[in-house]
């Protein structure tokens, strides 16, 4: 492994942030109604200067009240899922791990269905139900994955898969037996959807993102060693038990965050970390921030495509990421095998 310099870290992140900024600009510009560069620039300028009365209220509504919150959500979700994916891949030492492999998304889906059955009249019940479900599934898988006080990667993986399929069965049972008029949007939500604004301010979501990614980042150097095997890492002085716990909790919180506001957006957590590794190497000290930015770029791009390709109809963003993600993934897999 070539040594990582601070210079390389900062340059890479700055470059990715630049791409993200560009992507955000294009996402603000394109939509059902395309807005000219000049109008967009003047809109952003006047809003920033507090002279919002200078711009057409139509543009302001579309760009600032519809597109911008959605882009914020896309960035937060993309960053969460990608970092969670990279973390699970290290934790389970399995390149095929994604944020949903340990049943978090099934838990979230079950939680949101239960919230629709029990608290259908409460606004914003779905994301809270989803988050509670994600936490519950995480806890269940954690206890299944414990062996003598330590998280065992294989027990964790198997426990996660069993939990996921058990919860999916419960979901199918509920969806076919309960005659809830509210469950209609469910299938849509399971595909991953960013069109519904989150009832929680994006600022708070961002805070959770920063805390989650920050916690995982503190273990970045240890994760590099952990990739060589747990025994080896332990001999090198890594507190393996603590590292695994922090990564597991951090990645689960990030996944729960993403799932509760946007449903299950597939492939982002799988593809982005692999692409970032391919481009910048697999040092987790660089991988984690680069993956966060890359995930944000990927989901903003996917969502921009999802809402412009067949406008005014919108595709669920999850369909878009799977459509692009699956072929990329197959390509990577073939390359690795070759």
């Amino acid at each position: 492994m070539r040594p990582l310099t601070l210079r390389k870290l900062l340059l890479t992140c700055a470059a990715l942030a630049g791409v993200l900024l560009l992507m955000v600009f294009f996402s603000l510009k394109f939509g059902t109604r395309s807005i000219s560069m000049f109008d967009l620039a003047s809109l952003l300028y006047h809003s920033a200067m507090g002279q919002s009365d200078q711009v057409s209220s139509d543009f302001r509504l579309i760009v600032l009240d519809i597109r911008w919150p959605r882009i914020l959500l896309a960035m937060i979700v993309g960053a969460s899922l990608s970092v969670a994916g990279a973390s699970f891949q290290a934790l389970l030492r399995n390149p095929l791990a994604d944020p949903y492999v340990l049943g978090v998304s099934s838990g979230a889906a079950l939680g949101s269905i239960l919230s629709l059955i029990w608290f259908a009249e409460l606004p914003g019940a779905t994301p809270f139900g989803a988050f509670a479900g994600a936490v519950a599934a995480t806890a269940a898988v954690y206890f299944l994955g414990r062996r003598g006080g330590d998280l065992d990667s294989y027990a964790l993986l198997l426990g996660g898969i069993i939990t996921a399929s058990f919860l999916s069965a419960l979901i199918m049972f509920l969806m076919t037996t309960i005659s809830g008029r509210e469950l209609r949007g469910m299938a849509f939500w399971l595909m991953g959807d960013l069109s519904t604004p989150s009832p929680v301010a994006p600022g708070w979501l961002f805070l959770v993102l920063v805390v989650g990614v920050g916690a995982i980042y503190t273990t970045a150097a240890d994760l590099n060693l952990l990739l060589g095997g747990e025994q080896e890492a332990m001999h090198l002085g890594v507190d393996v038990v603590r590292v695994k716990l922090v990564v597991y909790l951090g990645a689960s919180v990030l996944t729960g965050l993403a799932v509760s506001v946007s449903g299950a957006i597939g492939y982002v957590g799988l593809i982005v970390p692999h692409l970032v590794r391919l481009l910048f190497g697999s040092d987790y000290r660089l991988l984690i921030p680069a993956t966060a930015l890359g995930g944000a770029i990927a989901v903003v791009l996917a969502d921009t495509l999802a809402r412009t390709l067949v406008a005014p109809t919108q595709l669920p963003v999850g369909a878009m990421t799977a459509l692009v993600g699956a072929p990329v993934f197959i390509y990577l897999l073939r390359r690795r095998m070759a």
Binding site: G31, R33, I66, R67, R184, P312, T313
Partner: peptide
Amino acid sequence: RVGGPINPNLEQIVS
């Protein structure tokens, strides 16, 4: 058109 009943396009509706 403003999209489907489950996921109508807010931008289109606003405009």
